[in-house]
Design a protein around this nucleic acid. Structure first.
Lengths: 206, 206
DNA sequence: ACCTGAACACCGTTCAAGT
DNA sequence: ACCTGAACACCGTTCAAGT
């Protein structure tokens, strides 16, 4: 029998399940049913459940595109980090998968290589370049994680309620900050933190 | 019948399973077996699988202790972030749980409140204080995530092999940086990135 | 060679029966 | 009231049989 599906079709169907019904709904059997075949057929295209989840991560990373480089490394690092963050946020339900899986697809390496290249133009010592790279990547994934499960996430009412439920009066600093959260946007907040980090990196420039 | 277990016993047994056999091995049935009882008994102590995982996260967070404050906010933010990172790294197998679950236990709020308090002494505008808070938290969780699944993680030989397997010659900047990774420690790397961020935050001080 | 149904060894949870 | 076994509806994957 001829191959019935392409890897792209499988990946698209799997990502659609995650987007629509959450990561818990992604199963070999559900995917097979969505494609109109039996569960065992999937094993001809995908290396088990683990391989299927890698495919989903690759599909999410695939539409993170490399911004055009400029002559300003800070601008480029900012643009790349922001684009990575946008790409991950485009599929919120897939974030747990992206966060916990080592991304090894070629498409992901391209933008990571671009980030390292931009940081290279900052003229840092080797160890500083590595630390800066990890910090930028950490900030991006950390921001995605925080939006998913952070202490000050969600509507301010919801956050206030949650904090209140855990003895809000005992944690006055969190309570005060949660009020600020309702007056700013997630985007501006990410941008602000990223700019602080970029300023700190720039101080190491030689 | 009297209650057979305390919540602490359940949490300790669950964390032990995760530490020893990984997060995939944590099941209601395995936990019950470890405690010498039937699966259904667990439901008298824990709000289902989800509640069990929250219990594990709470147990990990529980031994993150608040460092003594000094008169230097940068020192204090550094100490708190480092202690959080240490606490998460103490249970590597539990990191996926900690990263993806909203932490709502009172014990976790205490140190987060301390972090916000230390940042408050930096004399920042409200939105900058919030951005700095999220950035520090993001850096900590991002560092934990990167160690688990980052592109330059693991032994240098392993990383080099992985990068080589994905056409290393095509990504020269990653390849060069991966050589630096073998000459520094994870600790120094985290420390370097954190200090850069702290410097950037300090620039916003009024 | 490639595909796939039956079967196995799990899983979380409902429900009702025990004490 | 609290505890818990049986049962149900899932799950990933092995294995062997189909074409």
């Amino acid at each position: 029998m001829r191959a019935k599906f392409t890897t792209e079709e499988i990946a698209a169907a799997a990502l659609a399940i995650v987007d629509e019904a959450g990561v818990a709904a992604l199963s070999m059997r559900a995917l097979a049913a969505a494609l109109g075949t039996g569960p065992m057929t999937m094993y001809n295209y995908v290396a088990g459940k683990e391989g299927l989840e890698e495919l989903v991560v690759a599909a999410v990373v695939a539409d993170v595109s490399m911004p055009a480089p400029s002559d300003d490394w800070q601008h480029d690092v900012h643009a790349i980090a922001t684009e990575m963050w946008r790409g991950v946020r485009a599929h919120p339900a897939a974030i747990p998968l992206v966060l916990t899986r080592r991304m090894a697809s070629a498409t992901g390496f391209a933008i990571v290589d671009g980030l390292v290249a931009a940081l290279g133009r900052a003229n840092l010592a080797d160890v500083d370049r590595l630390a800066a790279f990890h910090a930028v990547l950490g900030l991006v994934t950390g921001a995605a994680q925080a939006e998913l499960a952070g202490p000050l996430t969600g509507s301010s009412a919801e956050a206030a309620q949650r904090i209140g439920a855990v003895a809000g009066a005992e944690y006055p600093h969190i309570a005060a900050l949660s009020k600020v959260a309702s007056r700013t946007s997630i985007e501006d907040d990410f941008d602000g933190g990223l700019r602080m980090l970029l300023d700190g990196i720039a101080l190491r420039s030689r």
